[in-house]
Amino acid sequence: MPKIIGGSLAAHREQVRARVFEALRNQLYERGFDAITLSGVAAEAKLGRTAMYNHFPDKEHLLVAFVEDEATRYVAKLTEAVAAVPDPIGKLEAFARLQLRALADYHLPPGSTLAATLAPSAYRRVAAHADPITEQLREIVTTGVRQGCIPEEDPDLLVPMISSALASREVVDVPPEQLDRAIDGAVRFVLRAVGAKPRPDANLG
């Protein structure tokens, strides 16, 4: 019987998943999703192949579980950051900055490639995690329009346009020492695009 890590089956499962996800994250940075294999991830996680297959029967299941775990953590972080700022423009700045930082930090395939890689049901599970993020942006924009911080415009138009601007990998595909400056410029662009001015105390470079 395999050695139980963490004192219980539940703790063992969580620790194994954490090790596997860390190994997958490292390999996504190094080589990209297409070059990843279950056996390679298992080896880096110091997990036997049989044990790996018990948790994740194929690469698709591994990717979906990883994205769901990352998305849950990210949505909680985003919610906390947005809630900490009182005004809609500050919330939009916080939202945009975190979205761009996440885009720079994560190396998953783009949506169109991911859709082709995964079965439709698996892709829907992954895509569903974008819903609470989009709803946060919609709430920020709607509140900003209602309070007069953002010129009146249809949120159904603004939200996808902002989302598209914040999903452009070219913005953050720069040398590490240039990333903060690139994000600052992109945040300024988003604020200008919605007709808002940065707050006087905003640190946008």
Rank of each mutant, 00 (worst) to 15 (best):
M1S: 15
P2K: 08
I5E: 13
I5D: 13
A11R: 14
A11M: 08
E14I: 09
Q15I: 09
R17N: 11
R19M: 07
F21E: 11
F21Y: 13
E22D: 15
N26C: 11
G32N: 11
F33L: 15
A35M: 11
I36Q: 03
L38W: 01
A42F: 03
A43E: 15
A45P: 02
K46F: 10
T50G: 10
N54W: 10
H55F: 13
P57G: 13
E60C: 04
A65L: 06
F66Y: 14
A71V: 04
T72K: 15
Y74F: 15
Y74H: 15
A76T: 12
L78T: 03
L78H: 02
T79E: 15
T79G: 13
E80Q: 13
A81Y: 00
V82S: 05
V82D: 00
V82A: 06
A83C: 05
A84F: 00
V85N: 01
P86Y: 04
P86A: 12
D87S: 09
P88Q: 05
I89W: 00
G90R: 07
A96C: 09
Q99K: 14
Q99Y: 01
R101N: 11
A102C: 10
A102I: 00
A104P: 07
Y106R: 14
H107Q: 12
L108A: 06
P109T: 08
P110M: 05
G111N: 09
G111D: 11
S112P: 03
T113P: 01
A116V: 06
S121K: 13
A122T: 06
R124H: 10
R125P: 01
V126T: 08
A128G: 12
P132M: 03
T134E: 15
E135N: 11
E135T: 12
L137T: 02
E139F: 01
V145C: 00
C149Q: 13
C149V: 03
P151N: 09
D154G: 02
L157W: 12
L157F: 12
V159K: 04
V159T: 07
V159R: 05
P160S: 07
I162G: 03
I162Q: 03
S163K: 09
S164V: 12
L166Q: 04
S168M: 15
R169I: 03
R169T: 08
E170S: 13
V171C: 08
V172G: 07
V174H: 09
P175W: 04
E177K: 11
Q178M: 14
D180C: 02
A182E: 00
D184E: 09
D184R: 05
A186S: 14
R188D: 04
F189R: 10
V190R: 05
V190A: 08
L191R: 02
A193N: 09
G195P: 03
A196Q: 09
R199T: 11
D201R: 14
A202K: 05
G205T: 07
G205Y: 06
